[in-house]
């Protein structure tokens, strides 16, 4: 579903639950397709030698590189470095994003004055700012955290904002009738009604934030998985480079899974078929 914003036709992703029915069948199909691709790949590189292994290493070599990687302390150092920056940047983005999103969504004045700029910033390719960040904040953690924050905060703000706008007026009326006012109204009515939207924004923010972290390390860093990847690529260690990319894919997906689990735990009442509060 899409919501048209005050400024135009930007899309907002409504919180969505994983499709469950028939999932198993498709999972097997997916496994089959992946296995077939890997087999063709292995055959093309190792047996038929259609592509030089130096450019495109076969799956077996990548798996070997992957296992080797997991045994290296250097890898784990990089892992901790990346995750630390990601978590700090994301935590900042969540706090700022939810508070700003609620305020802008709830206050008509802010919505008409601030929201257009938020959409503008959201649609700016912030990745292009990465070199600037590194120039200003240096090669250390600060520039990475700033990038994570910058990329993650907008989806969180905008989703929270749209959630706050769609809170049913009758819930607000109910709150007022039963004596809930001011900050309490925000805490007891607006915030919980908006939570599924915020979590959905956080999910997208986390994915974007991780991209920011890796990009920052790649462009100019002294540590982290992106730095390792850059090193492997320049050394022409293709198997290592691909193994690192796989690690990143796994991390990104684990993060997404973690947040959607969190959403189910925090908002068990949320039913996708209904917009919150429209009962």
């Amino acid at each position: 579903m899409t919501v048209t914003s005050a400024t135009g036709t930007n899309r907002i992703v409504r919180p969505r639950r994983v499709v469950r029915s028939g999932e198993g069948k498709w999972a097997w199909l997916l496994v089959g397709v992946v296995a077939a691709v890997l087999l063709v790949w292995e055959a093309a590189v190792s047996w038929l030698q259609l592509v030089p292994a130096a450019f495109l290493p076969p799956p077996t070599e990548i798996i070997a590189a992957f296992v080797r990687l997991l045994g290296e302390p250097e890898f784990w150092q990089a892992f901790v470095y990346s995750m630390q920056n990601l978590l700090i940047g994301l935590a900042l983005a969540i706090v700022v994003g939810v508070v700003v999103g609620l305020a802008v969504g709830w206050s008509p004045v802010l919505r008409f004055t601030v929201a257009p700029f938020l959409w503008l910033l959201y649609s700016t390719p912030k990745v292009a700012l990465a070199p600037l960040f590194i120039l200003i904040l240096g090669l250390g953690n600060e520039s990475k955290i700033a990038l994570v924050f910058l990329l993650a905060v907008f989806p969180i703000i905008l989703n929270t904002m749209e959630g706050a706008v769609t809170v049913s007026p009758s819930l607000v009326s109910a709150g007022r009738v039963f004596g809930v006012n001011g900050v309490y109204l925000g805490w007891k009515v607006i915030f919980p009604a908006t939570l599924p939207y915020s979590l959905s924004g956080i999910q997208r923010g986390a994915a974007l934030g991780f991209t920011g972290e890796v990009l920052g390390e790649f462009l100019g860093g002294t540590g982290g998985l992106g730095h390792l990847l850059e090193f492997a690529a320049y050394q022409f260690m293709m198997a290592e480079a691909i193994a690192l990319v796989i690690v990143m894919v796994i991390i990104a997906n684990l993060t997404l899974w973690l947040i959607s689990t969190l959403r189910r735990r925090l908002a068990p009442w949320y039913d996708d078929r209904k917009i919150v509060g429209a009962s």
Partner: peptide, 17 residues
Amino acid sequence: PGPDRAVVFQDYALLPW
């Protein structure tokens, strides 16, 4: 609104969470 008056809403207005 005040504590001397309570409302039963036509559309229920229950907090879904």
